[in-house]
Design a protein around this nucleic acid. Structure first.
Lengths: 139, 139
DNA sequence: GCGGTATATTCCCTATAAGGAATATAGATC
DNA sequence: GATCTATATTCCTTATAGGGAATATACCGC
């Protein structure tokens, strides 16, 4: 039964937070990591778990792995994701995460917020690396 | 987060089948057992699991424990139960279970199908339970 | 090739889940 | 009281999950 696999994915708090974030569009691992404030291993493992069960899809972009909700989710999956999104409004952590995501996206307005861009070569003109290197997308 | 507890309850096939049955109204353990074709320990343990997390409520009626969906479920719970019922249509086992439940209820029409009634003293006055010779436990 | 970054995997430990066999408990009847 | 029935709990084993530390892999730029 496919349903139980879906619910297995949904019964961990970190995974719910990840899925909530992905509702806003695709994201690379480091952004998820930063928003959740969780260690890399933890985030990566939960993403693998979700991926193995078809709850997320992924593409590689240079160094970054960009995760998203599946392109053509099954009926069960989309029903449950919709239900989750609905329920998420009643639990503050999801709202806080989404707000953080919004701020993160704002930092990159213009370029899509799909990767960290930390350390993407700062065009030698710019000011020192104290502030987060402001960057253009690495392509 | 309450949500994860709900999903923990939903990520086992047997528990999903039980919840699906309870959508049709309250049921005693032996009926659930009979419909699912699962051993008593298993059913009882899953019911305990659901009860401990507030997914089902229970009342005692003589020897029988009669389980039902909660009377005033939280928003998250009712949303997810509705979603489950929706998804259940896509997985045959739920339909089969419901059909069995229907047949079982038909057997007891008039009296509510809340307990096995095996061995419930037939008040010597009454119209006997028709053809059914004072049933022994159906198993 | 080298070094750096982003992410995944492995190894290890602990916690929880699932199932069955056996036993315990609560209520009913006598 | 004893006995029966319906259900719950305990004990045990095996499987899976979740987390962290360390390590491996994949890609980039030089």
């Amino acid at each position: 039964m496919k349903l139980t696999q879906i619910y297995q994915c949904l019964c961990d708090r970190t995974r719910l937070r990840i899925l909530n974030l992905l509702h806003g569009g695709e994201l690379c691992v480091c952004h998820i990591q930063e928003i959740l404030g969780e260690p890399q291993v933890k985030v990566s493992k939960h993403l693998s778990y979700l991926r193995a069960r078809g709850l997320v899809a992924v593409r590689r972009k240079a160094n970054w792995m960009v995760y998203r909700l599946p392109d053509r989710p099954s009926g069960e999956l989309s029903a449950n994701l919709a239900c989750l999104q609905d329920c998420a409004r009643e639990t503050p952590v999801f709202g806080r995460d989404s707000a953080r995501l919004g701020r993160l996206k704002a930092k990159f307005e213009g370029s899509s917020p799909i990767c960290c861009m930390t350390k993407v070569r700062v065009p030698q003109s710019s000011r020192g690396r104290a502030a987060r290197p402001r960057a253009t997308s690495p392509r």
